[in-house]
Simulated scan of single mutants.
Amino acid sequence: MGRRQVTGASAGVGRATVRLLARRRIAIALLARGRLGLHAAAEEVRAAGSRALPIEVDMADHDQVIDAGRRIEDQLGPIELWINSAFSSVFAPFQQVRPEEFRRATEVTYLGYVHGTRVALSHMTPRDRGTIVQVGSALAYRGIPLQAAYCGAKHAIVGFTESLRCELLHERSKVKVTMVHLPAVNTPQFDWLLSRLPRHAEPVPPIYEPEVAARAVVGAADQPHRREYWVGTSTALTILGNRVAPGLLDRYLARTGYKSQQTGRPADHNRPNNLWYPLDGPRGHDYGARGVFSSRAHGRSPQAWLSRHRVASAVGLLGTAAGVLVWRRK
């Protein structure tokens, strides 16, 4: 029985990933801060026929992550797959984000990945096997306004992971590390992140359901030989566009980035947020995987399939090209 571990497992992409893995009837450790969401996710795992080990942990606290790793090894067995997806952030112009808030968002989103990776490697390296999946973002390559803390952390994760990958190659390690870069996803984050925007925050369209991201994450775990996977055409265009014309994107986002991240509804600045403490949902209801934008979200991404099946895609394109050449000769 494989042992899988998912951070940020109580909601959003992490929750959707847990649901997908649970269908395989394996042992899964779930790490998150929110008790209700965490235990609700564990019940879904058990209902699907898999074994669940929910662990309340703040990924920003290295000692807590170490303890979580020990519990997983003691109660489930060797860790074979570790998926980092936990994060927090602040929606606001940079100068409106307090230093302690920026530090906290960085500690959860960036150092949480560092801590998780360190603990995973401490168990995987002696056995010389295992896979680590870093859930990234198109914003790991292209910063946008109003999300400086999140974009900075995601950029840092890329640099950290690339350095680590080189070291593992130098050591001829069989431990694999891969990244999955996501587009805008319909998760509960827009209802629980700290926001100082005048209107309610929303993802930049096009929006995808978290199940699209989960399929890509699980696919990357199954095929970790690739450095990274891109999910959604918007992710590919963002990353490639930033390589070609970053200055043009600066001006475009300066014009459109504020409006595209806010709905027409006024923000409720008195609502609780999860930057410092977990939110277990109103009246005991956990947030689940999806946010409130399902009416506008895509349930599939052809580009994500192409990213996972490059050989098949290349063969198909070559076949099409050959067919065109034959047709032209007739």
Rank of each mutant, 00 (worst) to 15 (best):
T256N: 06
E80I: 10
C166Y: 11
W230C: 05
G152E: 04
A40V: 09
A148D: 00
A140C: 08
V311I: 09
S163L: 11
L249C: 06
G152Q: 02
V311T: 12
G284W: 01
T178H: 00
G143Y: 02
L20Y: 00
A27G: 15
W305G: 00
P99H: 09
S195G: 09
L248F: 11
R46S: 13
W192V: 15
A213W: 05
E209G: 01
A156S: 12
T117C: 11
H39N: 11
I132A: 02
V13S: 03
Q5I: 14
G219R: 06
E162A: 08
P145A: 06
G143T: 05
Q75Y: 04
S307G: 10
A92W: 02
R4P: 01
A105W: 00
R127F: 04
P183N: 09
D268W: 04
D191S: 14
L21P: 03
I207L: 01
V324I: 15
G12N: 03
L248Q: 07
G130I: 13
R296S: 08
A148Q: 00
L317F: 12
L111H: 13
T187Y: 07
S88A: 15
A47Y: 03
G281W: 02
P203H: 10
G257Q: 06
A216C: 01
A236C: 03
A153E: 00
A86K: 08
A16F: 09
G159P: 02
Q134Y: 01
R70S: 12
H181W: 01
R329H: 13
P198R: 05
W192H: 13
G2H: 06
E100L: 05
S195F: 03
R226S: 05
L111G: 02
L21T: 04
N242G: 12
N84L: 07
Q261M: 14
P246A: 05
D74N: 11
R300F: 10
A92Y: 00
V204T: 13
R300Q: 11
D268E: 06
E43P: 06
T238S: 15
G284D: 08
L53P: 13
G152R: 01
V175Y: 03
N186E: 01
V231A: 12
Y229E: 02
G143I: 01
R15L: 05
R46D: 04
M59F: 14
L318R: 12
V57K: 10
A92H: 01
R283W: 11
H200D: 09
R24S: 07
R118T: 15
